[in-house]
């Protein structure tokens, strides 16, 4: 497999952003976010590329990737489902919903289903506690007041999508 490379447009975006900071090292978080968006995860090959683009040692990239929980070094499922289980969500049924989802998928929190479709994670407070329990899917919009019916629908839709993609 050839080494990953950012698109020209991305590289230009990065250089535009570089002008906003006194030092290039500040680009690390934004560029890692871009890399994860483009490549799905930030494995060592991607980290090497990021180190080169930002102009810092690989070690500095690794240190950041492993410190911040949103960066992942390995691929996750097609749907990443993250359940907040902190205090306000917990007293609003978050663990029951997490258990329900895991049982339905036959996995434990932190695991990915064998078909590669779902990764379920327990996460810390998402900062939307009035909507407890709160769930975030694929680092996208929040689902507030999540319930079993919503979980069922999400699972069903994801499976249907995958089937359609396979059929194509």
């Amino acid at each position: 497999m050839s080494a990953p490379r950012f698109s020209e447009a991305r590289l230009q975006e990065i250089e535009r952003l570089a002008r906003r900071y006194p030092g290039r090292r500040s680009l690390l978080l934004p560029v890692l976010h871009m890399a994860q968006e483009d490549f799905g995860h930030v494995g060592e090959d991607v980290q090497r590329m990021v180190a080169e683009v930002v102009g810092v040692p690989l070690m500095w990239v690794k240190e950041v990737v492993t410190f911040y929980t949103m960066f992942r070094e390995r691929p996750c499922g097609k749907r990443l489902i993250e359940f907040c289980t902190n205090a306000s969500c917990m007293v609003n049924g978050a663990y029951e919903l997490l258990d329900y989802t895991c049982k339905k998928l036959g996995i434990r929190p932190g695991e990915t289903t064998e078909d590669g479709l779902f990764t379920v994670k327990e996460v810390e407070c998402l900062g939307a506690c009035a909507g407890a329990p709160v769930v975030q899917v694929d680092h996208g919009s929040y689902k507030e007041h999540a319930d079993r019916a919503w979980v069922d629908q999400l699972i069903e839709e994801t499976r249907r999508e995958a089937e359609e993609e396979q059929g194509r």
């Binding site: 090292r25 500040s26 929980t69 810390e124």
Partner: peptide
């Protein structure tokens, strides 16, 4: 005046002001 949005990446500690600064410098918070 330029305003730049800088996204964190899932570390509560970066809400502490000096950790926040470290984070914008591209380091662990």
């Amino acid at each position: 005046l330029h305003i730049t949005v800088h996204r964190g990446a899932g570390a509560y500690i970066c809400g502490e002001e000096t950790a926040l600064i470290e984070s914008v410098e591209g380091k662990p918070g």
